Simulated scan of single mutants.
Amino acid sequence: MATLFYGNAAEPIHIEDRALAHLKVVIATKLRRQESFTLSWEHYDGEPGGRSTIWIHPSIPLRFTFDEAERPEINPQWVQLIMNSANSTGGICLVDEILATPEPQA
């Protein structure tokens, strides 16, 4: 389980390693453009129920830590889905990964 540390929040945000790797690509892209947005997620089992939302802003410190040392292969389709949600009025909502489907053989 990876961890996202944001600002001076008392509690870190726990997100699965592969999901956070993809989220990091989108967040870094948005912050490089000086764009602010919201990030929402559902709480994991063992945490209080419900969901949370934070406002991501370029001036607030952010740190990503991963349990796995090896970087996962990035799925461009998943990054695009997350980016599309980042550009919406609702901000980033973590969505399930879409796996590429093989093209039918002619």
Rank of each mutant, 00 (worst) to 15 (best):
T65Q: 11
M83T: 06
V79A: 09
Q77W: 06
N87I: 03
Q77S: 15
N75Q: 07
C93N: 15
N75T: 06
N84M: 00
L81S: 04
N84E: 08
I98N: 13
M83D: 09
I98P: 14
T89C: 04
E73P: 03
F64W: 01
F64T: 04
D96T: 11
I98F: 08
F64P: 12
A69Y: 08
V95T: 06
P102L: 12
T101D: 12
I98R: 14
P102F: 14
Q77Y: 10
P102A: 08
Q80T: 13
L99P: 08
E70L: 14
L81F: 03
E70M: 13
R71W: 06
G91R: 00
Q80M: 10
L99H: 15
Q77L: 13
N75E: 10
V79P: 00
F64C: 10
S88R: 07
G90Q: 14
M83Y: 05
D67T: 15
I82N: 00
T101W: 02
S88E: 09
I92L: 00
A100S: 15
N75Y: 05
N75C: 04
P102N: 09
C93D: 10
N84G: 01
N84I: 00
T101S: 11
E73A: 13
E97G: 02
M83E: 12
I92E: 01
N87K: 02
N75S: 04
C93L: 14
L94Y: 04
N75H: 05
R71H: 09
E97H: 02
R71K: 13
A100T: 12
F66V: 03
D96M: 09
C93V: 06
S88G: 14
T65P: 00
S88W: 03
N87T: 05
E73D: 11
T65R: 15
F66E: 03
E103L: 10
E73G: 11
D67M: 15
V79D: 05
C93H: 14
Q77M: 12
F64E: 00
N87E: 15
T89D: 07
G91F: 00
Q80E: 15
V79K: 02
L94Q: 05
I82V: 11
L81Y: 02
V95D: 01
E103G: 07
L94V: 14
D67S: 15
I82A: 01
P102S: 09
L81P: 00
Q80Y: 11
Q80K: 15
V79T: 05
V79S: 02
E73C: 03
G91S: 03
G90E: 14
R71F: 06
S88N: 12
N84R: 01
